[in-house]
Deep mutational scan, measured.
Amino acid sequence: TEEFVRLWREAVRHNQTLHWNGTDFIPGDEWAEEFARREEEKL
């Protein structure tokens, strides 16, 4: 979602874990980066 992408970019900028829907998205984590890339492509 647009909100997820916005929060993810913020988390990456501050190198912080994003807690989203009970899942931890960690900047630099391969799975999280791939998920975020797919979400961005949907926008």
Results as ranks from 00 to 15, higher is better:
residue 33 E to D: 07
residue 40 E to W: 13
residue 30 E to G: 10
residue 23 T to M: 15
residue 26 I to W: 06
residue 28 G to S: 04
residue 28 G to D: 03
residue 40 E to G: 07
residue 23 T to Q: 15
residue 41 E to M: 14
residue 33 E to F: 05
residue 1 T to A: 14
residue 8 W to S: 01
residue 24 D to E: 11
residue 30 E to V: 13
residue 20 W to D: 00
residue 11 A to L: 03
residue 6 R to A: 07
residue 32 A to K: 01
residue 36 A to K: 02
residue 5 V to S: 05
residue 11 A to F: 04
residue 12 V to H: 05
residue 34 E to R: 10
residue 33 E to A: 07
residue 32 A to I: 03
residue 35 F to Y: 14
residue 3 E to R: 08
residue 23 T to K: 15
residue 34 E to G: 09
residue 12 V to I: 10
residue 32 A to G: 03
residue 28 G to T: 04
residue 37 R to Q: 07
residue 22 G to T: 02
residue 5 V to M: 13
residue 8 W to C: 06
residue 21 N to Q: 15
residue 21 N to T: 03
residue 30 E to Q: 13
residue 4 F to N: 00
residue 15 N to K: 12
residue 37 R to F: 05
residue 2 E to K: 12
residue 34 E to K: 09
residue 23 T to N: 12
residue 12 V to S: 06
residue 18 L to V: 06
residue 3 E to G: 07
residue 13 R to T: 11
residue 19 H to V: 10
residue 8 W to Q: 01
residue 41 E to C: 15
residue 26 I to D: 07
residue 27 P to Y: 02
residue 8 W to V: 02
residue 35 F to G: 00
residue 29 D to F: 04
residue 29 D to R: 04
residue 15 N to Q: 12
residue 32 A to F: 03
residue 31 W to F: 10
residue 32 A to Y: 03
residue 36 A to S: 04
residue 4 F to S: 00
residue 4 F to V: 00
residue 43 L to A: 06
residue 4 F to M: 01
residue 17 T to Y: 05
residue 21 N to I: 05
residue 26 I to H: 12
residue 20 W to T: 01
residue 42 K to W: 08
residue 30 E to P: 15
residue 12 V to E: 04
residue 43 L to K: 04
residue 32 A to W: 04
residue 22 G to K: 05
residue 36 A to H: 02
residue 38 R to S: 10
residue 28 G to C: 08
residue 7 L to S: 06
residue 25 F to D: 01
residue 14 H to F: 14
residue 20 W to Y: 11
residue 20 W to M: 03
residue 33 E to Y: 05
residue 1 T to N: 12
residue 10 E to S: 04
residue 42 K to S: 08
residue 19 H to N: 11
residue 8 W to N: 00
residue 14 H to P: 00
residue 10 E to R: 07
residue 25 F to H: 07
residue 6 R to I: 08
residue 38 R to F: 07
residue 6 R to N: 08
residue 4 F to A: 01
residue 36 A to I: 06
residue 5 V to G: 02
residue 5 V to T: 07
residue 43 L to H: 06
residue 24 D to P: 08
residue 18 L to M: 08
residue 16 Q to G: 05
residue 39 E to S: 13
residue 11 A to G: 00
residue 24 D to K: 10
residue 19 H to A: 06
residue 41 E to I: 12
residue 1 T to M: 14
residue 33 E to L: 07
residue 34 E to L: 10
residue 20 W to I: 05
residue 2 E to Q: 13
residue 29 D to I: 07
residue 30 E to T: 13
residue 26 I to R: 14
residue 15 N to Y: 06
residue 35 F to V: 07
residue 28 G to L: 03
residue 36 A to V: 10
residue 30 E to F: 12
residue 22 G to F: 06
residue 23 T to E: 10
residue 42 K to F: 07
residue 23 T to F: 15
residue 8 W to A: 01
residue 15 N to F: 08
residue 39 E to W: 13
residue 38 R to Q: 11
residue 10 E to I: 10
residue 27 P to Q: 03
residue 26 I to G: 04
residue 9 R to P: 01
residue 13 R to M: 14
residue 17 T to N: 05
residue 26 I to P: 05
residue 7 L to R: 13
residue 37 R to P: 00
residue 31 W to I: 07
residue 2 E to R: 14
residue 3 E to A: 12
residue 22 G to M: 05
residue 37 R to S: 07
residue 3 E to F: 07
residue 39 E to F: 14
residue 6 R to C: 15
residue 15 N to T: 05
residue 8 W to H: 01
residue 33 E to R: 06
residue 16 Q to C: 15
residue 15 N to V: 04
residue 41 E to W: 12
residue 43 L to N: 05
residue 6 R to V: 07
residue 8 W to D: 01
residue 19 H to L: 07
residue 33 E to C: 11
residue 34 E to M: 12
residue 19 H to R: 13
residue 4 F to G: 00
residue 19 H to D: 03
residue 31 W to L: 06
residue 18 L to F: 09
residue 20 W to R: 02
residue 5 V to E: 03
residue 21 N to E: 11
residue 23 T to H: 14
residue 29 D to Q: 09
residue 32 A to M: 03
residue 28 G to N: 04
residue 34 E to P: 01
residue 20 W to G: 01
residue 18 L to T: 01
residue 35 F to T: 03
residue 43 L to F: 09
residue 9 R to F: 09
residue 23 T to D: 07
residue 35 F to C: 09
residue 43 L to I: 09
residue 1 T to S: 14
residue 43 L to G: 04
residue 29 D to A: 07
residue 3 E to H: 08
residue 39 E to H: 10
residue 16 Q to W: 13
residue 30 E to K: 14
residue 29 D to L: 06
residue 11 A to T: 02
residue 1 T to L: 13
residue 35 F to R: 04
residue 30 E to D: 12
residue 32 A to L: 03
residue 10 E to F: 08
residue 24 D to W: 13
residue 12 V to G: 01
residue 43 L to T: 06
residue 37 R to N: 05
residue 8 W to L: 02
residue 12 V to Y: 05
